[in-house]
Design a protein around this nucleic acid. Structure first.
Lengths: 164, 164
DNA sequence: CCACTTCGTTTGCAATTGCAAGCAGAGTGG
DNA sequence: CCACTCTGCTTGCAATTGCAAACGAAGTGG
């Protein structure tokens, strides 16, 4: 009754926060809201007001619009949610640059899908291996780059080692 | 603290309503909110939640974004570009991927600008030393990569680390 | 083992939202 | 003059937001 479908936005916030690898309290502090309230928001127990939403967006360094859309407070059509379309429509880019951007973008989406399956590795600070924290970025980019650097044509961007 | 400066949005709503030549009650009905509450909102005595704001926007047949901007709930930034907005709004990317994409994009824009001496209304206070004569794609991408591949200390990336 | 820290969560409670009902003023017209 | 209708505004009140404080769990270190 009191929570129709606020869950989606809570999940989204939590997802974004965990991807940013910051704790609930950290985000709460960055957003200027209380920790317990953020906890309740993330679990869909509370429906944050627009102000809170905006602050959380800032704390997450994401677009407030993204949050509003997730919360169903903005019609999707109002936001250019299509990255590829936006890139294609950008007149400041050369055609080549457009292609590169689109390719990298699509490569990212592919990796994101693959990465979503292994979201369980919660590491604690300064306790051991850093592994894929800082290495994944260049890897992702290099992978996306290859087809252009070598002009190979088609390259699958997967080199991860998951499950065994 | 008891009287927030929501006056601007109230004024804006009232303006829009009068421009549409409808009464307060009519708009209240169309928006699905109570008349007295709308009255208080218009006079800045109440701070409506995002939901109410959205409903009012619908009742006024105006963009919800316009209202959010008026309410200060969306940073009406310089509208960096549709591409950046789209990337920021993309819920399928991780934050890091977003940053990388935006970085690459801005790197492209930078190079394009250097190549194209067509500065119109831009004031980007950043010193780019990546002016390559060659326009080879790998070069461009490497430029965008450098902050990540080398070290994550110094990079002219868009960092909004303002503390309030 | 106990102090110390960090994590997310639960528990009251003040402050606020948002509404139903009612108030005051300005037209209309019988 | 009174009834009716429109305008916007004020008054209680239930429900909700949002926070301070405290709680259990899990890790670190003396």
């Amino acid at each position: 009754m009191a929570l129709p479908k606020v869950g989606s936005i809570g999940e989204y916030i939590r997802e974004q926060r965990q991807q940013a690898k910051i704790s609930l309290r950290q985000l709460a502090a960055a957003a200027g809201v209380s920790n317990p309230y953020l906890s309740q928001i993330e679990r869909g127990l509370r429906k944050p007001s627009a102000e809170i939403l905006n602050q959380i967006a800032k704390g997450l360094h994401i677009s407030a619009q993204a949050l509003y859309v997730q919360a169903g407070l903005i019609e999707d059509r109002e936001t250019p949610s299509d990255v590829v379309t936006a890139i294609r429509a950008d007149t400041h880019l050369t055609e080549r640059q457009r292609q590169v951007l689109i390719d990298i973008y699509e490569s990212f989406r592919k990796e994101k899908r693959a990465e979503d399956e292994q979201t369980s590795q919660n590491a604690h600070p300064r306790s051991g291996s850093v592994t894929d924290d800082e290495q994944s970025l260049p890897a992702e980019l290099r992978a996306a780059l290859e087809p252009y650097a070598a002009s190979t044509g088609n390259g699958t961007v997967n080199q991860e080692t998951k499950e065994g």
